[in-house]
Design a binder for these strands. Structure first.
Length: 491
RNA sequence: GUCCCCAUCGUCUAGCCAGGUCCAGGACACCGGCCUUUCACGCCGGCGGCAGGGGUUCAAAUCCCCUUGGGGACGCCA
């Protein structure tokens, strides 16, 4: 395929939206797949021009997902001169003309057309001005915008979209669109095309809203004497009500930042996002980086929009259940050595990280993570539900307290007694602890479960968890004994 | 008002382009079971869909048309 060049061109909004992330992912994957170049370009014309902090959120999101770009970030605002030059060329080659209609006039005409249920396209008032009329207005200093001159006649623009197939649009259904404002500033549709030409973009992979703009942009390419690139439009991601996802409506869940701060594994998020509207013929769902790059293809991109299945206020799923399932899958299956740094970050943030976990206690740390990870969904679970394994500061689950400790008041006295027996144990092993606890239950004439559950609650603050004897070994003799002796504080 | 796109379980989807092997397969979610001191994991099973209607054909989820539903574009926004 030669050297492909693709770009992700977000406007600086301050955060990376999940829809934008998906677009970025597809571009990145395509570049990596084809050995091409992935370019980052910030489309900062108009309002948000010149606010670096709004760009930062986007860069952070891309980096967190592991998407590395080869060129850029370029800033569209820096090329306004080029965009204007292109408009000049269009004017000179009669592919565009000066339009002296004022925005107010246009707005009025437009509203009238809408009210009368007529077509709202530009009526072509200035299209056929004579050279004399144009000169007179220019001399009089009447401000003008520049409009692209749509070809006349029954012709059409045709192209093949890599995901939607052949698309054809009649000139008659298009209008003379504005390319430069009357204040001389270029518009997106022009700037975008000019930038793509300059950056040598070979494949434009973008959201489906660009599909309707594509014929116009192809016309711009042709008027400028350039070969249009290959286009591939991706369907949208909608909410369960089939409305577009936005930060405004849906809040933080719509941003990558949310996942970064809520215990998600970057690769899991990427894996989920890539599956939203793309699949392989064998319907595979988990990939490592190399596998995904190998498997990716524009052919697998679906035409139908997909739903991001998020329900605000759901106590069980803070985001799409599938995303949580994928996160949990990676959490329990990924290499411990790769998982450890992610957990470390959580623990540092929670203030319970100890450098020993990467030093003398590394083996213990990894084994403990491995012991508990199969029941966790989020990285943050290690510092909430899992805090007792790593720190003496841990929360006591209310249900565990009521059901397994308070309900059996005798435990207040028994557990310290058991602590002494465990402390006196020859060895501290699965066998010895199990023997001690079952023997203790027999001696007190209760079912082992009563003691086991009480110990679990006192030692981990949890109602559930791995097999208790494994838990004891992981937590360690000293801590177990201490926590059992101090059980009185809960009564 | 004009133009364009889309349509398989609740959700993500395989199958559709090259019609039969599909009384439609997988995943998530949900329900039940096994395992078990608990909870997960794992395993087994269940629930659940070709939007509707016409064609074409020996045969249609697959091809064609219409209807319905959804989305998008039509800015001196990006």
């Amino acid at each position: 395929m030669g050297h492909t060049r693709v770009r992700f061109a977000p406007s600086p909004t301050g955060y990376l939206h999940i829809g934008g992330a998906r677009t970025a992912i597809y571009n990145w994957l395509f570049a990596r797949k084809t050995g091409g170049v992935f370019i980052l370009r910030i489309e900062d014309t108009d309002v948000s021009r010149g606010s670096p902090e709004l760009v930062q959120g986007i860069l952070d999101g891309l980096r967190w997902l592991g998407l590395d770009w080869d060129e850029g970030p370029y800033f569209q605002s820096q090329y306004a001169g080029e965009h204007r030059e292109a408009a000049q060329k269009l004017l000179e080659s009669a592919h565009a003309y000066r339009c002296f209609c004022t925005p107010d006039e246009l707005k009025a005409r437009r509203e009238r057309a809408l009210a009368e249920k007529r077509d709202v396209k530009y009526d072509g008032t200035c299209r056929n001005l004579s050279p004399e009329e144009v000169k007179a207005k220019e001399d009089a200093g009447v401000p003008f915008a520049i409009r692209f001159k749509m070809p006349e006649g029954p012709g059409s623009v045709a192209f093949r979209d890599e995901v939607y197939g052949p698309i054809e649009k009649r000139f008659a259904d298009l209008e003379d669109f504005v390319v430069v404002r009357s204040d001389g500033s270029p518009l997106y549709i022009l700037s975008n095309a000019v930038d793509d030409i300059r950056d040598g973009i070979t494949h434009i992979i973008r959201g489906q809203d660009g599909l309707a703009n594509t014929p116009k942009q192809i016309l711009i390419y042709e008027a400028l004497g350039k070969e249009p690139p290959v286009f591939a439009h991706m369907s949208f991601t909608l909410d369960p009500k089939r409305a577009k996802i936005s930060k405004r409506r849906h809040g933080e869940v719509a941003t990558v930042e949310f996942y970064r701060t809520h215990g998600f594994i970057p690769w899991a998020v990427l894996n989920f996002l890539v599956l939203l509207g793309w699949s392989t013929p064998d319907d595979r769902e988990f990939f490592d980086r190399a596998e995904l790059i190998r498997a990716f293809s524009l052919e697998g991109v679906g035409k139908a929009s997909s739903v991001f299945n998020f329900h605000k206020g759901d106590p069980k799923f803070i985001t799409d259940p599938k995303l949580m399932a994928i996160n949990a899958h990676y959490l329990r299956t990924m290499e411990l050595s790769e998982l450890a740094p992610l957990i470390r970050a959580e623990m540092e943030a929670a203030g319970i990280w100890d450098d020993m976990f990467e030093g003398a206690e590394r083996e213990w740390f990894l084994a403990t993570v491995d012991l508990i990870r199969s029941r966790y969904h989020l990285l943050s679970d290690f510092v909430t539900e899992g805090a007792a394994y790593f720190s003496d500061e841990f929360p006591m689950n209310e249900n565990a307290l009521n059901k397994n400790l308070l309900k059996s008041p005798e435990l207040a006295g028994w557990l310290p007694e058991l602590a002494d027996e465990i402390d006196a144990l020859e060895g501290f092993t699965l066998e010895s602890t199990e023997g001690a606890i079952r023997g203790f239950a027999d001696k007190k004439g209760v079912k082992a479960g009563v003691i086991i559950n009480g110990v679990r609650a006192a030692v981990t603050g949890q109602l559930k968890g791995p097999g208790l004897f494994d838990v004891l070994i992981a937590v360690g003799k000293d801590r177990v004994v201490r926590r059992l002796r101090e059980v009185g504080r809960y009564y």
